[in-house]
């Protein structure tokens, strides 16, 4: 899932300070599951902003609504009327949700209430960890299902650097060394030979380095009107 966390209240207040009518829009998918921007968080944030702006002596009209997915046009259509009534939209979606709102409602100013942090999973209650860097050319088949691009601090491809000690990364004792994890897993699966091959430099074109990415699936596209 996409993992995000809420921005500090002061920063959010600064982002919406010039608006009278604010619409807080939650999202029912990833950010709901990571407790950052779902129905519940949208309601709590709206209440906090109402209270806080009132205490500041500059009360703002704060409404809130949550859609199933901010990243799909059909769900955004459902809040068109509320958006029109607001001066500003405060999105509690991920960065994709914020941009979808901006694109779908070109006349409306939209600001983010979250920092979109990574693609990951909850490793335990209340703890989320990064798992994927969306590099566009998955090598998990070589590394025993543990990603060195996302989980090695240096995205190394040929094994651990000299900073791996007692299973953790040189950057912090709290950061597991991805290559230690890969080594242990390949050893346990009797597949250490995979580590002995020299992996050539990665082709980063499939990653962000190739520019903004796009997938076109002709088999799924609808026929154009001319056809």
């Amino acid at each position: 899932m996409i993992v995000a966390e809420q921005k500090p209240l002061q920063e959010i207040k600064a982002l919406i300070s010039n608006a009278q009518n604010v619409l807080v829009v939650g999202c029912g998918t990833c950010v709901t599951v990571c407790f950052a921007g779902g129905e519940r968080e949208a309601a709590i944030l709206a209440a906090s902003l109402r209270m806080s702006t009132r205490l500041d002596g500059k009360p703002q009209e704060i409404r809130h609504e949550t859609v199933q997915r901010q990243c799909e046009w059909e769900y955004l259509d459902q809040i068109a009327e509320l958006v029109q009534q607001a001066d500003i939209v405060l999105s509690l979606g991920c960065g994709i949700g914020v941009q979808a709102i901006a694109e779908h409602f070109p006349q409306k100013w939209v600001v983010p209430g979250l920092n979109t942090t990574f693609l990951g999973l909850p490793s335990e209650q209340g703890v989320w960890v990064e798992r994927c860097a969306a590099c566009g050319d998955c090598i998990l088949g070589l590394t025993g299902g543990i990603c060195p691009i996302a989980r090695c601090s240096k995205s190394l491809l040929n094994g651990p650097c000299g900073g791996s000690e007692d299973g953790h990364c040189e950057i912090s004792p709290d950061t597991p060394c991805a290559w230690q994890l890969i080594y242990d897993r390949l050893l346990s699966m009797d597949k250490l030979h995979l580590l002995m091959e020299i992996q050539p430099p990665k082709n980063w074109r499939t990653s962000r380095d190739g520019g903004p990415r796009k997938i076109v699936r002709e088999d799924l596209r609808l026929p154009t009107k001319e056809e």
Binding site: L156, N158, G159, C161, Q199, P201
Partner: peptide, 8 residues
């Protein structure tokens, strides 16, 4: 950067 690693 880490475009490449030391072995590469």
């Amino acid at each position: 950067v880490f475009d490449m690693d030391s072995i590469q």
